[in-house]
Design a protein around this nucleic acid. Sequence first.
DNA 1: CTCAAAATAT
DNA 2: CATATTTTGA
Length: 228
Amino acid sequence: MGEEVRMSDYDGDDRVYEWEVGLPSADDLTPLSQPLISPEMASAFSISPEPRRSATDVNRASQNTLSAISSSNNFNFKSLNDERSQEEFVEEGDEADLAREGSDPRKAKRPRLVWTPQLHKRFVEVVKHLGVGNAVPKTIMQLMNVEGLTRENVASHLQKYRLYLKRMQGLSDDGPSSDKLFTSAPPPQMMHMPVIGMAHGNGHMGPYHGFESHRYNMVQHRDWSGNK
DNA sequence: CTCAAAATAT
DNA sequence: CATATTTTGA
């Protein structure tokens, strides 16, 4: 737990994938440790564990960052100074969307959830804290306390995560190179997940790199702005 | 066109 | 809640 995100250099290419220029600093989000008060308790006491991030604000950050990726418009590099929302980004309807559909943000159609490394990290941490046996979608979602995150999202990701674990456990190494990596020590977690997003470009390259390459991209959802 | 992530259905 | 299948996006 001491990895530092090194954003020392950006590719001189025109496609600069900014994973988290203004909000990296630490891969560790909230100190998910003991101060984990049960949401229920918090709710019962009417105390807000967190200042409830209005997705709007966070969204703005995402928009800025994503702008760099989306279009080659390069007039947003300045976002490197401000925008330090190192929280999780959740695709949430904007004001317009929020106001839509009557008055139930819960029912609003979320475009698509992008499991950014940060989010995944949280997810893994929570799962680890709960234990594989008690790690159920609902609990995970609640403990994560990520605004906008729904149980379905977690369930889907959990499924994938389990498969990922299984895959690794079943075939540890095996493959082209018979490398005797870890003989019989199935660490719950070795590296972060394979990939949350891959820079394709045109052709097709290796699905997962295998190592922790911080080349993730935070591709946003569809173009709900009106452009395809 | 392929493949994998997320959504959705069973 | 878990698993299977479909959709969606790079």
